[in-house]
């Protein structure tokens, strides 16, 4: 489902962030992506959510080589990928409910369906009292929960989360991880990038340890 072969990535400053990376992840798997700061975790996620193209190598997602996908088809592919950004990347001029509803609106869902899903998800992440609040009035933890709600609302086939529990308390963190597991059970491939070893040790999922742009698998 996700296949990286001989992937190199650099941002034009000659230093390769990812070097000769080979990786194959099956559909419906759950992985932790670990590694020290600057090891390339976020860059790898960026490649996977099509936020950057590899400098060289072949990247296939959902069985499709991304270099062969036409530009008009890329948005359709992106809609199947849910991303929790480390810096949340919420739209400041939209309220909580509008931020969460955005992926469904972009996908052209009906208003009634959007409202049902958004209400349930916002209640679930515990922010139903802040539906009309703007992101700049929320704490980092609240922003993170909104970012997670936005990432999962479209029921993505691939969920990529960059430090998803970094700004929330352990209770909320457990809830979020439970949600990711539930999504995984119905077939969503989940990759969580984190350097929180305590979080990784709580679960028995395979770990992809990224060091100096190369992956060591720890099953």
């Amino acid at each position: 489902m996700i296949k990286l072969s001989k992937i190199y990535l650099n941002y034009g400053n000659n230093a390769d962030i990812l070097k000769n990376l080979d990786l194959k992840l099956t559909s419906g798997s759950f992985h932790f992506l670990t590694g020290p700061s600057g090891s390339g975790k976020s860059s790898l996620l960026k490649l996977l959510f099509l936020g950057h193209v590899p400098t060289s190598g072949k990247l296939s997602i959902f069985g499709k080589d991304i270099s062969e996908i036409s530009k008009p088809d890329l948005p359709i592919l992106r809609r199947k990928i849910g991303v929790v950004f480390q810096d949340f990347r919420l739209l400041d001029h939209l309220t909580v409910i509008e931020n969460v509803a955005l992926p469904l609106q972009i996908a052209g869902a009906r208003n009634r369906d959007i409202k049902d899903h958004v209400n349930e998800l916002i209640t679930w992440v515990g922010l139903n009292d802040k539906i009309d609040a703007f992101p700049n009035t929320l704490s980092d933890g609240e922003k993170q929960r909104i970012a997670i709600a936005r990432a999962v609302i479209g029921r993505p086939s691939l969920l990529l989360a960059d430090e998803p529990t970094g700004s929330i308390d352990s209770n909320q963190g457990d809830k979020i991880m439970h949600l990711f597991e539930e999504l995984n059970k119905i077939g969503t491939t989940v990759i969580i990038a984190t350097h929180d070893n305590s979080l990784v040790s709580q679960f028995d999922y395979p770990k992809l340890n990224l060091v100096n742009g190369k992956i060591n698998r720890n099953e």
Partner: peptide, 26 residues
């Protein structure tokens, strides 16, 4: 989604979710 996360069906937002945000982004 509701089956997936098994939450209550209490609806909190009754208003209309705008599809055009241009008016908000002055």
């Amino acid at each position: 989604m509701e089956k997936l996360i098994g939450m209550n069906k209490k609806k909190h937002f009754k208003g209309r979710i705008s599809r055009i945000y241009s008016f908000k982004r002055r």
